[in-house]
Amino acid sequence: MSRKSSSKISRRHFVEGTGAGLVAAATVAPLKGQAPGADVKNRTQGAPSSPPRTKIKFTINGAERGMEVEDHWTLVELLRDHLGLTGSKIGCDRGECGACTVLLDGKSVYSCSQLGVWIDGKSIITIEGLAKNGRLDPLQQAFIDHDGPQCGFCTSGQLMSAKALLMHNPHPSAEEVRAGMTGNICRCSNYNHYVEAVLAASAAGPSTGSGGNAA
């Protein structure tokens, strides 16, 4: 993340400075934020190096939950690093790729562009909340049937955008599906299969619109 000038521009500095290295930057940042050897879980409250923390309550995939969060944690960091919900992915970490998409009070948002502390009193649905009683959401099944995932990295975000779309518009046209999923990039470029899958799930019946824990 450093932008200190050096007489010799290394590839690492160049990549980090231009945005192509955002993934690398995202993985480096949390380590830099910690004091050497510090364990976030065991950090003493009020120690000089301790980042500001706040107690919050929220609903995650239907279950109520209370915890103390560091103010600067993004929502996706809270989900992945502190709740073990690693289905939401960090791609760009800048609200551009959509891999971290979750539902916040029933609306799709980039969880990298929300702070964990802001979800106090709110309800979050992640990819882990779609399947119900061991049964896949019809959208998930349609994604499988239509070979939606290629490398799979963007898939959970694609599913959450599709879920948000069908919750508000249970029978979209192909054009509406494309418009509804513009916020999710697939670098395998399997967009057409995703659109087919969403249309198939929408045609399959009304259960899709209120499936999962999102109702």
């Binding site: 959509g98 799709s108 513009t182 916020g183």
Partner: peptide, 9 residues
């Protein structure tokens, strides 16, 4: 503006 996610937030 942007995408559905951007417009929701």
């Amino acid at each position: 503006v942007g995408t559905p996610q951007i417009r929701n937030a």
